[in-house]
Design a protein around this nucleic acid. Structure first.
Lengths: 282, 282
DNA sequence: CGCTACTATTGGTTGAACCAGCCGTCTCTG
DNA sequence: CAGAGACGGCTGGTTCAACCAATAGTAGCG
């Protein structure tokens, strides 16, 4: 295997997918919704019926439905049943990982990712700004350690270690910002990134300038040069994101649809549900 | 009352707080965690005991615990019980509204809000950028309608209508961006804003330049002038946010602590748990 | 024709019982 | 006496069966 002691050390322990019955049913229903098998406004069978369908009892089934509800995928109303929500409108970034996994329309995935990448850049810039202002000595030392580790992993061309190490690097950056707000904003992105590492390893782009970027960035941080840190980050990610989108489109082209045809009922529906052409007024 | 037909029309129907037993217990436990009555790492009583304490049965109690778990406030492990998580580290923006409501330490609320405001600005800028590029004709018409309504409400000095109308304005802006990613990022902010409107009406700052800002912004959007829209937005919010923070500090000074003393065990704990002074290396 | 009362259906709540994972303890063994 | 293993008592996980409560559609009444 390509991962030695260092790799073991840098990979955070990730609990295996929960084996709960309720969690399993939840994931299955979520998949059906995110893939478009169940569409916005559709009504789910009653709890008794669903429980029978999944070969379990009502209480356990209810747990799954509750999870769906809190993920904003369905609306539950006493006496009326469970209806599928328009998750494109009511969802949050926490839906990103499961959506990337379950979406039936690859082009929509690309579309969303194309919007997420610049947003992610903004989050990183925001964290960098905060870190440049508030980082303690210990924070900087930790970041420097991880940076060194990352650079040596890069020299060895070990993608797995690099990807997980970079996740840790981002964690350290956010910690250094000493901002609860940034943490809360960044967490869904970190989670999505982590999911993507394992699911689409090919998407991880090894930019040749990666080590150089890290060195420049940590140097800017250590001198507290906020603007320099932002500048370095922006310059680097514009290049990486372009490469990521190229790679993504290649991957999607190779497997045009991971689901059987006929299941993409609302693939082309926009977030607002209108089908008007995007011509501008003027 | 100060709200006429227009006010009725502009206020979105907001379902009253759920009367579910499970939801009530959930909110109570959440309050205890967010206020610091239950601290990170602490173990909750067993489900049987808790159920008895709340005068309900285990199934209903479990529902409440599940909600806590999905809100990342607790960790549940089979055979080991339920332990309180470090929500400052593991939470997401969805915790913002309940945290603002339940936090025991006003200064921490101010601290977080001080970081959230610029983040909110970034989100608005991001949405504005996207709207300037992708807005349909119908989107712009809708935004113009709401803008007119807002300006007339401003002339009448009707804070309630303005606040709710502005919420609708933000919704329209985000819709105009035609980006699922932006929606997902913005939703927690919108929710927090909505909560704040009703909870702390005094916080809503009526900047004199509000109508002028709206007019400038919509004009920029209609000509598709992305940079101009950003510039206008940034300039306006820098002023508003400063005013908001001033107002917030006034409000907090008036009621230094909304909870009995002795309950703020971890008020001064940072997100990382280290107490090192913020001196810089160099 | 319009209102009311009923009823079927749906989710909400309850209580009890049993299964399954975890941990400290107690005992047996070397 | 020290270590390994069995046991018992926690904990959450699952199941069942019944009843309460909100909703909507329908049948019946005025």
């Amino acid at each position: 295997m390509a991962q030695d002691i260092v790799a073991e050390d840098i990979m955070d322990a990730q609990p295996p997918i929960s084996s709960n019955i309720a969690a399993t049913i939840f994931r299955d229903l979520r998949r059906q919704i995110l893939s478009g098998e169940l569409t916005n406004g559709e009504r789910l069978p009653g709890e008794r019926e669903l429980a029978a369908k999944y070969g379990t009892n009502r209480n356990t089934l209810r747990e799954a439905v509750r999870k769906l509800e809190q993920s904003r995928l369905v609306t539950v109303r006493h006496g009326q049943g469970v209806t599928v929500s328009d998750f494109r409108k009511t969802g949050t970034m926490e839906l990103l990982p499961p959506f990337l996994e379950n979406a039936s329309d690859p082009s929509e995935v690309a579309l969303i990712l194309e919007d997420v990448l610049p947003a992610r850049l903004l989050v990183i810039e925001f964290a960098a700004r905060s870190a440049a202002r508030r980082a303690h000595r210990a924070d900087l030392e930790r970041m420097r350690d991880i940076t060194d580790l990352l650079i040596s992993a890069f020299d060895k061309r070990d993608p797995v270690v690099i990807a997980h190490g970079f996740h840790r690097w981002l964690e350290a950056l956010i910690d250094a910002g000493h901002s609860v707000a940034i943490r809360w904003i960044a967490n869904p992105f970190l989670e999505a990134y982590r999911d993507l590492i394992d699911r689409v390893p090919g998407l991880w782009v090894l930019e040749p300038s990666f080590p150089e970027h890290l060195r420049k960035f940590i140097a800017a941080l250590e001198t507290g040069d906020e603007e320099r840190a932002i500048e370095v980050t922006r310059e680097y990610y514009h290049r990486v994101d372009a490469a990521v989108m190229r790679t993504l489109k290649l991957i999607l082209a190779q497997r045009p649809a991971s689901s059987p045809p006929g299941l993409r009922k609302q693939a082309e529906a926009t977030a607002n549900g209108d089908a008007e052409p995007p011509d501008r007024p003027e």
